[in-house]
Design a protein around this nucleic acid. Structure first.
Length: 191
DNA sequence: CCGCCGATCTTT
DNA sequence: AAGATCGGCGGG
């Protein structure tokens, strides 16, 4: 079943680990979510929304269940699921997937990937593999407005997900807001 | 396998 | 000027 607004409209620290083992569907491909990170708002110095709403972060402050897609390092796209109540700033960064379906298409989109586990093992790798870019900013996952949705296929989240500090952040680096599926070979880095 | 470095450009 | 990254290269 497709996840609905009730799922996303809760505390981001609750939603993030529950997204593990859900299935992301986009661009004719499917992948199982194995790594996520939570980002807050005014309470979180590492968040894009820390200093309030800007044109870039507008979606992060809106209703839950939307996709916040941002451009970084001059060449990469990263995708977040907006959480919490409308007006709050909170989102979950999708950091890695296990490729499930459409692997051939993923390979065409990411010709540099050598092994299957390199296709979606990073936030900008998975967007490239599934064809997600700036056109998908603000997409509604609840109605699959842009052909993107998140599904529960009956696989529960891990009972004891691995929890670490967030990758690549310099501020609030000690906050344990990254979660991944234990022993998954498809995460962005070993934990 | 690991660490370093350059690419590339938007946002602050 | 830094950044929620990636991939190539060199060394162990």
């Amino acid at each position: 079943m497709r996840l609905g607004e009730g799922f996303f409209g809760r505390d981001v620290l609750v939603v993030a680990p529950e997204l593990l083992n859900k299935v992301l569907v986009a661009g004719g491909c499917r992948g199982r979510i194995v790594e996520v990170e939570a980002y807050g708002g005014a309470d979180d110095p590492a968040s894009h929304g820390y200093r309030g709403m800007t044109p870039r972060t507008e979606v992060m402050f809106g209703p839950p269940g939307k996709l916040y897609v941002y451009f970084t390092y001059g060449m990469h796209w990263c995708a977040n699921v907006v959480c919490g109540a409308d007006g709050e700033c909170a989102a979950v960064l999708l950091r890695a997937l296990t490729p499930l379906d459409g692997v051939e298409v993923m390979r065409e989109r990411r010709p540099k990937a050598r092994r299957d586990r390199d296709l979606c093992s990073g936030p900008a790798k998975l967007t490239a593999a599934l064809g997600i870019d700036g056109d998908h900013n603000g997409a509604d996952l609840v109605s699959a407005s842009h052909g993107i949705e998140i599904r529960d296929d009956g696989t529960p989240p891990p009972a004891a997900p691995t929890q670490t500090g967030r990758v690549g952040v310099t501020r609030a680096a000690d906050r344990p807001w990254r979660w991944n599926v234990p022993a998954s070979p498809d995460v962005s880095r070993p934990s």
